[in-house]
């Protein structure tokens, strides 16, 4: 089977420092794969390799059976769309014009006839229809991220690569964006999402891939991967996983807070005893 994304033995060395080492990753059509991992684990670098922006030092990336590097820019843009972490815009285009930029790969193709319809649908799904006439640089960070998400959806591709799409978003829109990602997968797209929020990852992923120090530490269904033992080890911080209403919820273990009535200056000198089994050392309450 060739549909989807297939990375084999991907390694990236930048200035002599290995950033990624021997990463294998398959993303099939209809699947949401979430990449998680601590800062500096190589998530964004892996995503850059998958987009074709960075040529891997070793290994290969194939999209629909062909090396990513062999595609022309426009050909590739008709198959995969990318949401970057940071949104930039050099000039004061309006939000609608930015969303329309997502249709650029289809310019002068039969698909271009659907431009209006597709742009309207994308705006609706990213909840930015009401921002259409606003100037993009005057929007808030979260609104910019959603407009960019609409641009990505307007591209109508079968592969979506989203780098921390929820970072600037409020709770409502975080859920909405990941629901959209799931819908895209249900409609046959392959979706890769980089996330920091492990509970979101567990709730929306078909598969969670944990990167640590440039290697793929674990890969599997949320229930296989999102476990206290693995996450505590990878993040070097004790982590609890509880189940709530059928979803896994990841909770970092924290020392109990000092009573709210106590003034800060009068914080107890003795560490508050902790009843938590995961906690190795109670932190002093300061």
């Amino acid at each position: 089977m060739s549909a989807g994304l297939r990375a084999r033995g991907v390694g990236v060395v930048i200035d002599g420092t290995p950033i990624l080492d021997g990463v294998d990753l398959d993303v099939a059509a209809g699947e949401v794969v979430v990449l998680v991992g601590p800062n500096g684990a190589g998530k964004s670098t892996l995503l850059s390799v998958l987009t074709g922006d960075v040529a891997p030092t070793t290994g290969t990336v194939e999209l629909d059976g062909r090396p990513v590097a062999s595609y022309r820019a426009r050909e590739l843009a008709r198959r995969r769309a990318v949401l970057l972490q940071q949104q930039r815009l050099a000039f004061g285009f309006r939000a609608r014009e930015v969303v329309e930029m997502g249709r650029a790969p289809w310019h002068r193709s039969a698909e271009a006839e659907r431009d209006l319809e597709v742009v309207a649908a994308a705006e609706e799904r990213a909840d930015v229809a009401h921002l259409a006439t606003r100037l993009f640089p005057t929007l808030s960070g979260g609104e910019q991220a959603r407009v960019s998400m609409a641009r990505v959806l307007a591209q109508s591709t079968t592969l979506l690569l989203l780098d921390e799409p929820t970072a600037a978003l409020d709770l409502q829109h975080q859920e909405a964006v990941l629901r959209v990602a799931r819908e895209e997968a249900a409609a046959g797209a392959a979706v890769v999402v980089v996330l920091h929020d492990l509970s979101l990852a567990a709730a929306y992923a078909d598969r969670v891939c944990v990167l640590a120090a440039g290697r793929l530490r674990a890969s599997g269904t949320p229930r296989e991967v999102v476990t206290p033992a693995l996450l505590s080890e990878v993040y070097q911080h004790p982590v609890d996983v509880v189940e709530h209403a059928g979803h896994l919820v990841v909770v970092p273990v924290r020392p109990p807070r000092a009573p709210a009535t106590a003034p800060a200056a009068a914080a107890p000198a003795v560490p508050v005893p902790s009843a938590d089994p995961h906690q190795e050392q109670p932190c002093p309450a300061t």
Partner: peptide, 21 residues
């Protein structure tokens, strides 16, 4: 002209929407 518009997104994003930057 059309491609210059896309360049406003920055090099990477412009490439992602099909511009041979």
């Amino acid at each position: 002209a059309r491609q210059l518009d896309l360049l406003a997104l920055g090099d990477r994003a412009a490439r992602h929407v099909g511009v041979d930057v």
